[in-house]
């Protein structure tokens, strides 16, 4: 009996970590209007055109979230969100732990008022406040395999949930020149639990991807899948089109290529 219980608990633990990192595979709700905005709320196009440091008001749907923590005694969390057109990265948005767990769930619709900012290429909303709205939407991954090589086009999809298909893992060299399928931290100076960096080749060009540990921690299936990568593996990837001095997608799923 104890053994059964132990196995059941282990399975539950594995499943829970998987869920913590993965976007729920819910189908798009056809009834949900993900395009129309309330009065006084920007369309994505207006948001994209707004100057950095200007105040922005958007309505958006949470797609994934990094862990809740306290910054200077104030609870904050970072969210990957999008509407029917584009993505919004909500950086360190104040929220209570209770709201983070019970209200700000994946799919939830929120109205966000904050300031548009750009940090080393990543366009985000900071110093934000939010209101929970009625509505739910989980975006399907947009296939950007063919757009990867065109950074000018790719940047228009910044922060959106996206997929890359049929990528081949190539070696990453740490600072000492040792080649590995992935690195803990960008130069290999980290250890398990740190962000994982790896490179893939698509149509002869190489791109960097990151398993952000605050999004997919070391116990998540995605993190473990990254640790299991081997040079030459053919994989399909899903994640958010994060930017740092250029595209650096935050990966949420790694699977063997179909």
């Amino acid at each position: 009996m104890k053994k059964i219980l132990l196995v059941a608990l282990a399975v539950l633990m594995v499943l829970s970590t998987f869920v913590a990192c993965q976007k729920p595979e819910e189908p798009e709700d056809p009834k949900e209007d993900i395009y129309t905005k309330s009065e006084g709320v920007m369309t994505y196009e207006q948001y994209a055109a707004a100057a950095v440091e200007s105040q922005v008001v958007v309505e958006t749907y949470i797609q994934a979230k990094q862990g809740w923590w306290e910054k200077d005694g104030v609870g904050v969390a970072t969210f990957y969100t999008q509407d029917g057109v584009g993505g919004y990265f909500l950086y360190n948005m104040p929220c209570s732990e209770d709201d983070y767990n019970n209200k700000l769930k994946v799919g939830a619709k929120i109205k966000v008022t904050g300031y548009k900012a750009e940090w080393d290429g990543e366009v985000e909303i900071i110093d934000a406040t939010w209101t929970l709205l009625e509505g739910n939407y989980v975006a399907p991954a947009k296939d950007v395999t063919a757009t990867l090589a065109n950074e000018a086009e790719l940047v228009k999809l910044q922060n959106m949930f996206a997929s890359v298909k049929g990528a081949t893992v190539v070696a990453s060299a740490d600072k000492e020149g040792t080649e590995k399928p992935f690195l803990y931290k960008w130069d290999g100076s980290g250890q398990q639990g740190d962000d994982i960096y790896f490179k893939v080749s698509v149509d002869g060009k190489t791109y960097g991807f990151c398993v952000e540990s605050y999004l997919c921690g070391k116990d998540s299936a995605t993190y473990k899948a990254a640790e299991a990568l081997k040079v030459g593996d053919k994989i399909d990837l899903e994640g958010f089109l994060y930017w740092y001095q250029g595209p650096q997608p935050h990966v949420t799923a790694i699977k063997a290529a179909k």
Partner: peptide, 9 residues
């Protein structure tokens, strides 16, 4: 603490 520096590690 290291400064994300492999040599320090």
């Amino acid at each position: 603490k290291n400064d994300t520096n492999l040599t320090q590690t």
